[in-house]
Structure formats: C-alpha cells, structure tokens
Write a protein that binds this DNA or RNA. Structure first.
Lengths: 358, 358
DNA sequence: ACGGCTGGGTTTATCGATAAACATCGGCGG
DNA sequence: CCGCCGATGTTTATCGATAAACCCAGCCGT
C-alpha cells in the first residue's frame, strides 16, 4: 500500500471547485467563509483523510510554529537522570500544556566535529539552560535572533531567570566556618577541558559556567569574611552524579585526611559523597560534614532518616517562569526574574571534630 | 533596537553577486561549489549573522525536519513525575542524541473543546505511548500518515514495541494465589470516565487501555487456572501516583478488611499502598501482601530495606527501541518488538495470614 | 436612484528554501 | 580538430500554505 499522495489545500479546493484560500479560511478563519461552505469543506477533507494544513508550510508563511526549543548543555540522556533537570522540564511543560505549545528538546551536536550540522529545530523561541556560550549549537540558537530566555546563564541582553547562587553558597560556607571547619573541599562540576588536578579557591573560575563562577564567588565571600585564606579551600571537579560524588569523596578523603567538610555543588554529588565517606569509615556529621545544593529528594534507598544540609531551589518554578516569559510576554523588551534559593540546615553538617587539633 | 530583517539565502546571494542556489549548496552540497566561493559565502553569511538556511523553509521543501514527536496520553507535567515515563524518555533521547534528531514533546489538547486546534507539530514521525486512540490529538497524529511507532498500544497496522504484560501479570497473581491468598484486590489506573465504584475481575475491560486490558487478562489467566472465581478479585481504580495508591489502599482495607493482597498496576501505586497499609496498621508482608509493576527505584526516603515484589520492565529500553525503529529503519514495512518484563519476588509478598481462617 | 457597506469569495504575491534541468568552459582522448 | 566530460554555476519549478488586495451582489439609508 504505497502511501497515497497526501491531500493539500489545493487538492481539496479543486475537488470542491472552490479556491484554496477558502479552504484555508475554513480552518483558520471561519468567520470569512459561510457555514455551508465550511461544512462542505471540512466534510470532504475528513473523507480524504486531511487533518488540516501542513504545519511546515504554515510555519514558513506565518513565521510561527507553536513550539519552544529547550537546550541543556549536558547530554539529554543525562538530563533525564537528574531530578533537578527533570523538575525544570516539568515546570516548562506545565506552562506549555496550558498554552498548547510543543516542547522541542534539542540535543547538543556532539558528533564528529566535521559534521557541524545545522540547528534544525523549528521553534518560536528558546530556553537555554546551558552554561556555555561557546558550544556551536548554543551559538546557532543565539544567532537565530528568536525570543530567548536564559536560565542561570550570564547574558544581560536576554530575558533571564536567575538564582541567588552566590548568596546561598556564601551561607553554606559561612555555616561550616561557624561550626569550626577550617579544612574544606569544594566538589564542583567538571570543566569542558578539566585536567582533574586539585585546585583551590585562589584559582581563576571566570571561564567556567555562570553557576560555578557565582557559587565560587559566594564561597570566597564567606572565607574572606572569616579571614580564612582562600588557598585553604580545595576545589575538586567530578562528573555530576552520585557516582562522581562518591569517587571524588573517597579519593579526596584518602589524599587529604585532614578535610572535615565537603561542599558539594549538587545534591547528587553530596549523596554520592555520603556514600564515599561511609565507604572509608568517616562518620557524618561526626567526623565529616557534607553539604549539597538543589534540595532534591534523596535517591532511592539512601540515608532514609538523614536530611542533607543543602540549598533548596525550586527547579520546577524556574522552568515555569522561563516558559511564561517566553509564552506570555506582558510587554516588549527583556524580563529578568530572580528565584530565591534557601539555605536549609540538615543533619549532615556538624561541629568540626577536635577544633583544637590544628 | 528593532530586529534587523533577517538574512536569507537570497539576500546573501545578491550581496555577493551569486545565485541563491550556490549559497544553498555552500551549506548542503559543498561538493557542488568551489572551495573559494564556499568560503566567501560562509564568511559573508557569518558577518551578517546568518547561521544557515531557515529550517521551516527547508523542511517544507525537503519534507523532512529532523525531529520526532512523542505523545503521552497523560499530561506531560505528569509524565515528568513518573520514573517509568522519564526512563522511557531517556531511552528515546539516547538514540536521538546519537542520530542528531530533535524530540518534540506534544501535550494533548485539553483546553476548551471548541478550541479544537490543529496538531501543529512539525515532525518526521511519531512515538505514541498513548493508550487511547480516541483522543483528538492522537487521531490527528495517526491521520498524518507519518512513520509511527506505538508503545504498549494496540495497533497491528503500525510498528510497535510491546511488553508481555499479560504473562507477567499472570505470574504475579499466580504467585499470590500459591501463597494462599484468596481475597485480592487489583489497584488499576483510572478510566477516562471512571465512576470509581469497586468492580471485579468479572467485569468488562475491553474498552480500557491496551495495557490495562492485557494485565487484566493475565490476572484472569491466573485465577481461572487456580479455580478461584473471578468475582472474588476486586478491582479498584485510582490516579497513578503514590497518593492515589495510598488513598485507595486505606479505603479498600477499611471497606474490605478481609483483603490480604493488593495487586497494584504500578510501583508508584504500590509504594503508596504500602504507606496506606501502614497508616491503618496492616503489616507487610505479615498481614498484607502488596505487589507492583514497573521495577522503579523506591521514592526517596521510603521503605529502605524492603524490596517490592513487582514486575521489572525496562522502560529505557522501550524508549530506545521505539526510537531506533523510527530513526534507523532496516527495512520498509512495520517492525514489532517484544520486550520481556520479568517477575521478581521481593519482600512485600508473603503467605496469606491464617490460611485456614476462611 | 445612487454611493457605501458588508458578507462571501477570488486573485495574486510571498514566505525561504531545495531539486532538477540547463549553460559554460577548459581539458583531453581519439 | 571534434566531441564529450567534469567542474562550477545559473534558471526555473515547486514545496503548501497565509495575507492582502480586490471583486461583486444585495441591501440600506437618504
């Protein structure tokens, strides 16, 4: 059964002896066509299995297509393992549902670089939850000149939804310093070309993602205020998942047993770090404090009674607001929204052990 | 800063005094244009912020757009709370990443019915994980006549990815019957127009979703084989989330205290049912057995030590295979794949209490 | 009796690309 | 020296719709 040539506005029109404009109007502009003709048209269209105008053609002509593109900088298949990203998508989807918009998930091009294919997405705008401007796909998206909302991304010229990462992180570190911790390590996300060596807060983070940069600034705010030297705070990067956190923690604690606190840049890392710490016999919060960032539910079967000390941010709300800015613009021009993240003390941070030891 | 009129193939061509076809070829058909000209074109295009041909126009002309549409029958914002659906999407996305395809998430039209707007998605094919054919959006998708893969859906004319729900469910119920249970209730998903009354396995489920129908058949297979009357197995419907399971369990166990086993059609329901049972003092598996379906991780902080008796199915694999059928077709015609779900005995099912009581 | 309005259609231009057929030209085998 | 080929461009048709301008009959008020 070779697929029959599909009906078009024109074919329907000529079947019925009317003009294609009338058929178009029957679908889009019912007021411009008599009820009788409209019924005749719709009935005939149904009978030849025509379910409305071709979306690509319509989109070309009107310049709108009813979809928004969402770009993560991570792999999509990663995003679908990360509760934060999932909640973000849930927020976006709730608005899109309301507005009847489709969501186009756009994987980054990570194929062989010579392939450099074009960003084919047909969308009316973008939500970028992507820390790096430099990626070719992101560049292409920005070059389209479509309405765009960035999330946790430094782009003053665009609408944005931002979190107070800096202040929140400052609160975390201040909390640990107040508990007497002096040997801290930050567990952060990998750079594009990370070497993996241990750095410290003295180093330069201005090339890293907006989020990392802001959080590092927050850490500095806290240590500077406490008079602790930046060099005393180590920085270690690892992939953002439970496994990465576990490996990083185990390794750090073995190399630098004097550490008493791990400041993780995500809850996933933190939950992993808890497992890593347990694996080499460090007790939390007795001999080690661990903090996270995000406020997600603990992974299944993990640390049931214990609540993580973390920064709670509402990823769903971030998604929702971003989608709202794109789909329900109150006004021309750009909009910027700040979402407050909240520092919450849990059961994984406590007084530094033997404060006088050093 | 009014948005400058965007560059097009034609404008670039006339800027450079060449024909628009050459510009098109520079992007799509490098072999057909001299290296010198191509470089000149790309350089100029860059300088006027042109990042490649307009996707809608290209899609209209070529008939392809590099995206696949995914339709759930539930709300999208629900799908992003369900580990099964998320894993399914992860599977799809891993293939799409590989193939460089975009994913269009299409919310069902649930606005005012008079709105009956058209399915605007611009896609090359569909993955339908949608139990009901009757929904207008699903109808429109099917009417497009594009390559389509259905998942857990009864459509013999299309490619499909199916699970052996029936046999798996049969195993679950046979297991419970073997443990001596004679008063069972099935906790299932809501019908489109459910009334909420308690039914039994005697009732008719042929109008319900494919998945529900198959699983009910599996249950019947087991009870019929054991000589247990179908009327002895209750059927109760509730929304598919932990809360729904909890409410349904609490209510069922209060109305029908003689029940000793709850057969839940999803793990989310089952985890909810465990909470519901606990809330009214039933011990699992001592005085009540609970089974699930899916094999997802337990929700955060829930029943840490206890493993659910359930049917493990690989939702990620389902998504992957569906996407592969769509994006990497080996041959013409339709393909059907079966994915085996596996019954696993956990700690939530045990011998019926006081087998001799009744 | 006549100009203006309105409901219901039609004509024509256009959205921005790709595809296929066609032109031009230098080189090269016979 | 001729005819053909490959490399490089150009012309023209087309994908399937929407928008804007236009046309026309009937009706209305004056």
């Amino acid at each position: 059964m070779a697929r029959a040539k599909r009906a078009t506005l024109k074919s329907i029109a000529s079947d019925l002896g009317v003009t294609h404009t009338s058929v178009s109007n029957a679908y889009n502009n019912p007021a411009k066509v008599s009820k009788a003709l409209r019924d005749r048209i719709i009935a005939h269209a149904r009978s030849v299995n025509y379910e409305g105008p071709n979306p690509a053609a319509r989109s070309l002509r009107t310049g709108r297509c009813g979809a928004i593109g969402v770009l993560f900088n991570d792999q999509l298949s990663y995003a679908f393992t990360d509760p934060h990203d999932i909640a973000f998508l849930r927020g976006i989807s709730s608005v899109c549902e309301e507005e009847g918009a489709n969501i186009v998930l756009i994987p980054l091009q990570n194929k062989r670089p010579e392939q450099r294919d074009q960003l084919a997405a047909i969308v009316d705008g973008f939500i970028l939850n992507a820390p790096y401007r430099s990626h070719p796909t992101i560049r292409q998206a920005l070059a389209r000149g479509l309405p765009t909302v960035v999330v946790d991304f430094d782009a003053p010229e665009l609408s944005s939804v931002l979190t107070n990462d800096r202040a929140a992180m400052q609160a975390v570190v201040a909390h640990l310093l107040a508990l007497g911790h002096r040997h801290l390590a930050i567990v952060t996300f990998p750079r594009e070309e990370g070497t993996g060596e241990i750095r410290s807060l003295e180093d330069d983070f201005s090339d890293e993602s907006y989020v990392v940069h802001e959080r590092m600034e927050g850490c500095r705010d806290a240590v500077d205020a406490a008079g602790v030297p930046r060099s005393a705070v180590l920085v270690c990067e690892t992939t953002n998942c439970e496994d990465g956190g576990q490996r990083a923690a185990a390794w750090l604690l073995r190399c630098r047993p004097e550490l008493t606190a791990l400041v993780c840049f995500s809850d996933r890392l933190a939950y992993g770090a808890l497992a890593g710490a347990a694996s080499i016999g460090r007790q939390v919060p007795g001999t080690l404090s661990v903090t996270g960032f995000d406020g997600i539910d603990p992974p299944g079967g993990m640390s049931p009674g214990q609540r993580l000390t973390t920064v709670r941010q509402n990823a769903c709300e971030k998604g929702r607001r971003a989608a709202e800015i794109l789909l329900c613009p109150d006004k021309e021009g750009t909009t910027s929204i700040a979402i407050e993240a909240e520092f919450v003390v849990g059961d994984t941070s406590g007084a530094a052990p033997e404060a006088g030891k050093q």
